[in-house]
Write a protein that binds this DNA or RNA. Structure first.
Length: 563
RNA sequence: GACCAGUUAGCUCAGUUGGUAGAGCACCUCCCUUUUAAGGAGGUGGUCCUGGGUUCGAGCCCCAGACUGGUCACCA
């Protein structure tokens, strides 16, 4: 590995620290008793504190210095005075360890007392400090000026996502996003647990990837010698638990879909799914709007949130519009009672690309997606979806062409999807068979396998149940005003960083000679390689460049050795 | 998948018609005992994303590729 000048300097300092008898990575606990936030909130002149964190600023002014210590809560100014730290004659701890050997980013522990400087900055007067962990790589160091402008911000998205640990250290706003994410989870758990709904865990490795239509990741179990799929949804398992007698179950489900990536799609993402027995989708709408109002307030302190140019209010209740009314409102076309051909002609008139394979449901869905969906900025329930789009949803009590389904639209995108769950096992089997036929015809949105065990469960009887799924990543994007899913995932999926260093044939051959006999005199190696002058030159340069071989000059001549 | 943009020091970025690669911060040396994005003086640091090509000469022009971001398409 090629080290930069800065990294070499830090490694040399590490050696010097060891030479002073200081362990740069001590094992023993450090008795932290205060966080920087507590110091700021309950400031008390002269109070003794023990704090720890990264040294993030170091301004040496001769025999005294200011610094900044960053812990999990933020930063506090620290003041290093030579004679406070070194009471005797030996000033090594200040002059050498602090001034020369400590770098920005190093973890240190500090014992000190609180005071305010002449300009009124709350500060820890350092009485003693201890190196807790040496940082060998330099951190980027954004700075904020008096007007709040950030200079040299660490803002390259590629570096930020690939090295999220660095992003979190130097960009405090990033940490806030993830704190809110966890607050959202906690708020939901509180809301559900208060109602005695039961948090469960269901299989991620599934023999049939059911519950949604998406391409799964496939893997293989060696001792069973069967394929297994990473779940694309957990719906069918939660319903089995309702069959088993739980009144309400929920799960935060990491789902995996082997599809394209963009700023709203990551191959793994989180859905919250909840199923409650003896309820229907009307009840679930009431539940959903109360839940989201509660969550927004828990996360942001208010039901209002800003997303891009929009201000959204999650305060309940939300408007409820049937899909037919929505289409009538935005296109003037009434879909009720229309035949497939009439729908296709209408869609075509609206400029929507249609083809002969599209059924009624698909046509309606296209019209809605094209002409209506994007208009719903404030939270709005769209209800009563066409039957063929919803194979797990109960038929509408008033209209056999529709289902008892709603989606919650916010900023033109779906964030929740809910049904009165289909619990008629015969109907369910027929819907699965219909899906199977669609899949055989080549519709890749249709589910190609029938989960017979799920049908068996339904045959034992599932109570009337309403279920809902919420896209957690999308919801937290709204609540933190982030237009990209990568900003709300700690470690978004990225392409592999680098291809492995590829050596060419000459380089491989020379390396093989060298490995058998290292170090080797340079000219001897050259002769053994049998390469022409030019080839040799290129090859040895390539090897040193890749850091696999090293040329050293001694009094006896030039020697090559493996790195 | 298509199109557009980007990739230069640890970080953020300049880089003129193709002619010895720059700044700020960071880093190193020296001075400085209540400063605060930035005290003073001096200095070090480069795979200009990779590989080809054009050229006397390429960070810059041409071709191919990698990665990233954006828009669109596809996909819940």
């Amino acid at each position: 590995m090629q080290l930069s000048e800065l990294e070499i300097i830090r490694r040399e300092k590490l050696e010097q620290i060891r030479n002073l008898g200081i362990n740069p990575y001590p094992a023993d606990l450090f008795p932290v008793d205060t966080l920087t936030s507590e110091i700021k909130q309950n400031f008390e002149e002269g109070k003794k504190v023990v704090i720890a964190g990264r040294l993030m600023r170091k301004k040496i002014q001769g025999k005294a210095s200011f610094g900044e210590l960053q812990d999990s809560e933020g930063r506090i100014q620290v003041y290093f005075n030579r004679d406070e730290i070194c009471e005797g004659e030996d000033k090594t701890l200040y002059n050498d360890v602090f001034k020369k050997l400590l770098d920005l980013g190093d973890f240190i522990g500090i014992e000190g007392t609180l005071f305010e400087t002449q300009v009124g900055e709350k500060t820890v007067l350092v009485k003693d400090f201890k190196l807790l962990s040496k940082a060998l790589r330099p951190l980027p160091l954004p700075k904020t000026d008096a007007e709040g402008n950030t200079h040299d911000e660490f803002n390259d998205p590629e570096l930020r996502y690939r090295q999220r640990y660095v992003d979190l250290v130097v960009n405090p706003k990033v940490k806030e996003v993830f704190k809110k994410r966890t607050k959202l989870y906690n708020a939901m758990r509180t809301f559900f647990n208060e109602r005695d709904y039961f948090e469960v865990e269901t299989p991620i490795l599934q023999p049939i990837a059911g519950g949604a239509a998406a391409r799964p990741f496939i893997t293989h179990h060696n001792s069973l010698d069967i394929p297994l799929y990473m779940r694309i949804a957990n719906e069918l398992y939660l319903k089995r638990l309702i069959v088993g007698g739980f009144d309400g179950v929920y799960e935060f489900s990491k789902n995996f879909r082997n599809e394209g990536m963009d700023r709203t799609h990551n191959p793994e993402f989180t859905a919250m799914e909840i199923y409650v027995s003896y309820k229907d989708y009307n009840w679930m709408m009431d539940f959903c709007e109360k839940l989201l109002e509660f969550c927004a307030i828990q996360v942001n302190g208010t039901s209002k949130t800003t997303f891009g140019e929009h201000e959204i209010d999650f305060k309940a209740p939300y408007a409820r519009v049937t899909m037919a009314d929505s289409i009538k409102h935005f296109t003037g076309f009434d879909i009720t009672g229309k035949s497939e051909d009439e729908l296709r002609a209408a869609a075509k008139d609206m400029g929507i690309a249609v083809d002969a394979t599209m059924g009624k449901g698909k046509l309606i869905d296209e019209i809605f997606g094209e002409k209506c969906e994007g208009n719903y900025i404030q939270p709005t329930f769209i209800t009563d979806y066409p039957k063929e789009m919803s194979p797990l949803c109960k038929e509408h009590r008033d209209n056999p062409e529709l289902t008892e389904r709603f989606e919650l639209m916010v900023c033109g995108k779906e964030i929740a999807n809910a049904y009165s769950e289909l619990n008629d096992p015969i109907d369910q089997r027929e819907r699965f068979e219909a899906q199977l036929k669609l899949a055989e015809k080549g519709d890749d949105e249709a589910t190609a396998f029938i989960d017979h065990d799920f049908l068996r469960a339904l045959e034992y009887g599932m109570p009337p149940t309403s279920g809902m799924g919420i896209g957690m990543d999308r919801l937290i994007m709204y609540l933190t005003n982030n237009p990209s899913i990568q900003e709300v995932l700690f470690f978004p999926q990225m392409r592999p960083e680098k291809k492995a260093v590829a050596l060419n044939d000459e380089e491989k051959a020379v390396l093989a000679i060298l490995k058998a006999n290292s170090p080797l005199e340079l000219n001897a190696l050259k002769e053994q390689s049998g390469l022409s002058n030019k080839k040799w030159d290129k090859t040895i340069k390539g090897l040193t460049k890749h850091g696999v071989a090293k040329v050293e000059k001694t009094d006896d001549g030039l020697f090559v050795k493996t790195a």
